[in-house]
């Protein structure tokens, strides 16, 4: 099986400071990878480089696209990259405000990606929006309400529906449960896990929360000071951490 994403030598500096240095990995179809580390470890820099929101200073990111074959996300034209971003890729932001149009109804938010790829039948768009609202457990009668009238957890579920409606193959998630209450977090994680399994999604999840990776991720990368210091199967790394820093991370969760 070919990897869906192959990152090699990803390096990004901020002046003298290193954001992330020489990072490489393969992600296989259907696999979920967690990137953990404390703030400033470079995990968000890496995610933004992978998702095309930051341009790395060096490296390549090969994506196995269904439409375009294997292509380097860093050398694609903006048009090709934006097309991929509307179809095969998706990005779930930590703050739903960054990923939703707050002045557009829930139905319009879910429908936008469909219309962006050419859907022009109102009833069909609405039907798909309804079915996605149901999948993310938003009542159908809220379809014409704006997200500003939704709770934080509901906004986040709407953002997920908006991203998944065009059936992407690879989803980037940045602290998807950050900023939510613990009970709401659990429900969202459950939902995400279900969707990932059902749709056979590949995903890269950045989080500082080890509970999130334990639940969602097959494999993890542990980052510190812009470097990957430990990588492996999630259970192995979390149950038997080798690196002193990973041991510290795991221990601090247990104590809490």
């Amino acid at each position: 099986m070919n990897p869906i994403l192959r990152a090699t030598g990803i390096t990004r500096r901020y002046g003298e400071r290193i954001g992330c240095a020489d990072i490489g990995f393969d992600l296989y179809p259907g696999e979920v990878m967690g990137i953990v580390g404390e703030s400033g470890s470079g995990k968000s820099t890496l995610l933004n480089c992978l998702a095309g929101q930051l341009t790395p200073d060096a490296g390549s990111i090969l994506f196995d696209s269904a439409q375009q074959g294997v292509c380097d996300l860093l050398t694609l034209s903006e048009m090709q990259r934006r097309t991929l971003a509307r179809t095969e890729l998706a990005f779930v932001h930590q703050n739903p405000r960054d990923g939703l149009r707050m002045s557009v109804s829930a139905g319009g938010n879910v429908g936008e990606r469909l219309m962006g790829v050419g859907a022009r039948h109102y009833a069909n768009i609405r039907e798909q929006a309804l079915s996605w609202l149901e999948r993310v457990e938003i009542p159908a009668d809220r379809i014409d309400d704006r997200p500003s009238q939704f709770s934080g957890g509901m906004q986040q579920r709407l953002q997920i529906a908006r991203n998944l409606v065009t059936g992407p193959r690879l989803v980037f998630m940045d602290e998807p449960t950050g900023g939510l209450d613990v009970s709401v977090q659990a429900r969202l994680l459950d939902l995400l896990r279900g969707l990932v399994r059902q749709m056979g999604l590949s995903a890269i999840v950045v989080t500082h929360d080890l509970a999130v990776v334990r639940l969602l991720a097959d494999r993890i990368l542990v980052m510190k000071d812009g470097q990957v210091i430990e990588a492996g199967l999630t259970d192995q790394v979390l149950d038997d951490p080798h690196h002193a820093y990973t041991q510290l991370l795991v221990a601090s969760v247990l104590q809490a």
Binding site: R82, R86, R101, V104, S105, G107, G108, G111, E112, R113, M115, G116, V117, R120, Y122, I125
Partner: peptide, 11 residues
């Protein structure tokens, strides 16, 4: 990228 235009009509 004209999806947004149709979002307006959808609304």
């Amino acid at each position: 990228e004209y999806g947004l235009m149709h979002v307006k009509l959808y609304e």
